[in-house]
Design a protein around this nucleic acid. Structure first.
Lengths: 222, 222, 222, 222
DNA sequence: GATGAATGAGTGTTCATTCAT
DNA sequence: TATGAATGAACACTCATTCAT
């Protein structure tokens, strides 16, 4: 699901049934993320997670202590997955308008590509953010805000963007527009009778999100 | 607890404060909505709902058949609550720009005012919209789209609005911006260190949502 | 096991499988006492207790909340059983020596007749008296001490008993001598190769306990 | 955790501070005794014992085969500890009354000094003496009885002691009086509101036990 | 309609024990 | 000998659901 690692046949670690703590822990965590994403914290079943990896239930307690502990680890991992998905574009190399469109498009794409992350965040919010409190998001916050602020600033300096744009509100906007498209796929799709999983529908939506974000930033007295 | 109460025949049905069937059913439904909103479908407990209303669990099964049945009824009721919250403004009496701002603001407000509806929709989406399928949203859809389309159309006719605005995308946008602010209150608030329940924060957000929607619709070559 | 209730065919309460809360609770409690007495707190199995009474495990939680709660109730009931076993003799009607011998003999007998109480007390002490702390023994204490003190006092007044006898130490002595005979039946019996369950052995022991208590109290310069 | 340590071959077996097999086995046994004494057979946890000694659980199985095997060894060791505590006084050098008082006092003291032994015996009796059956107590029995009989005999020969004193009953008496004081510390202490761990309380109790044993043996027609 | 006792399948968790190295 | 990963059966406890009244 991430970039392929072509060579490097991770030789000394033979997967599955091996006595390799880190590998086992990791596999359990990935299985847990999938189960939690699919069913939510309360709908997920420890037994199911164990069965997915052909591992005894006890291993989960051995590595994570409790269902809650496992969920917390899965949540942390979900955040990581999300961060990795967004990191690698250098927006400073692009002109402000292009950068803004890229940023909005990439944000949308990373939501589309990581629905399991979105679903875990939904579950976490349904659970009143009980576990999110234990995580430190300082780095993430700084990175996102700086990237956004830089683009806005450069656009403003170039006389293209308005000067009432707050980076956090900007980020909230693009997150909301992207997140909602995936998160509320079922209820919104049902009411308005379309399928958000349809690539054509997604493409239209992607363009719309970009356009919304661009419109918000561009000066109107062009 | 075993002592007989010989006389005093609590004669003509006056148990539970004399409420009639319909009223009891309704109260149970409201209690269920609260419980489901707070804990989600899987976190909610039938016992808890019964306890909230000082009603026997059997009544729930008598009226709603099963936990699923009750949940379905609560979901339908949530949609109703939402519809009632949005219905009563006559946007046709307002000029397009004002109408658009009112529509966006009201949509935002109705989300803020009905967090339990939002949480039930989150739960429903986490559950892959399993129950939403049974509901008929034809009326709702038509009403929303017509209202939106009318405003857009009038704005376009007046030369104020762009002509690439799709009512459904418009509705998706304003819904996303409003919904996300409430739904992801915990995780977003944690990462960016603010409290979405704070009225001042909400006011800023409300203005931003209106501005985003307006910017999307207004022609830039004003 | 208690005094029979000859007439009074407790008609309206048909036992077993009936929907009689108090009766069910009581039966569960008795079964629990037996299981806890036989295996101790940690060796006892909730499932086993439920099976004994052909009752679902949930009933235990319905009535007692937890294994700990059930154990606490069983402990309290054990104390009650013990109290009932000792209560009904009027020692004031007997001369001091006879009273003392009766008291010692009865104490011994009530231990022999209630081994399950003894075993629950052993378990409780192994568990550092964690649950005993919640019980109020004021009445029991007062009754025992008063009864004992009265006998000792009357014996002393009659010039028969020594004047260095403390009622609490007296009670400790007779309790120890009786309790140990039953409690350490297995280890002591193994080391010294006899069976404390043998009535002949018990009879010898009973006489010895009485003699020890009497010797402790009688003046030696008779 | 995966990094290879190429050179530095921790050459000739020096893991775990260089302890040899016998010593390791012994330390594990002592740790087991403590755990079993504190929690009883069923409350004790193999994992906890291993953790106490920073030893892998497998070692326990290597040396003792099973939890039961370990418990049996701990029980045997408890008996040994107890024997060692009582052995070294030469009662034959003392006059009968002094010897009797010393014997009673020492028995009491060895109980006070070895509460873990007492607790293991309690656990063993709760478990119906299942493991005690495998132990041979011939030596212990003979030693104790001979010592006791000798004192009684000499007292009787001197015209001081009664002639109805059985060494086994005598031993049972002094054991019961001593054992109970420690074993039922929690329940008895709670009912009668005092703390058996208090040195002052213990001193009073010790004197009482000696007095009881002496009274039982001395002739009353002094 | 209404109650509270009762059920049984499941749900997270623990624990003695074994395996690969 | 020694470790730490791994197992599987059992355990306390929960929960949606039903039954007797």
């Amino acid at each position: 699901m991430n970039a392929p690692e072509p060579a490097l046949p991770k030789s000394p670690r033979q997967r599955r049934k091996g006595r390799d703590a880190e590998a086992t822990r990791d596999e359990v965590l990935v299985a847990a993320m999938e189960e939690f994403a699919e069913k939510g914290l309360h709908g997920a079943r420890i037994e199911e997670i164990a069965a997915r990896m052909a591992v005894s239930k006890h291993m989960i307690y051995y590595y994570f202590g409790s269902k809650d502990g496992l969920y917390g680890a899965a949540l942390a991992r979900a955040y990581e997955d999300f961060r990795h998905a967004e990191r690698d574009v250098d927006y400073r190399a692009l002109d402000p308008v292009t950068a803004l469109k890229e940023l909005a498009g990439n944000t949308f794409d990373s939501h589309v590509a990581n629905p399991h992350v979105i679903r875990i965040l939904m579950s976490e919010n349904l659970d009143h953010g009980r576990h999110a409190k234990d995580l430190d998001h300082g780095d993430q916050r700084r990175l996102v805000i700086e990237t956004t602020r830089d683009i806005i600033e450069r656009g403003r300096a170039a006389g293209l963007f308005r000067d009432d744009i707050d980076p956090v509100q900007f980020h909230l906007n693009v997150s909301a527009l992207s997140f909602f498209s995936i998160a509320n796929r079922y209820t919104f799709g049902r009411v308005f009778d379309f399928d958000m999983a349809d690539p054509a529908v997604l493409a239209v939506r992607r363009a719309e999100v970009i356009e919304v974000m661009l419109s918000r930033c561009l000066r109107r007295d062009g």
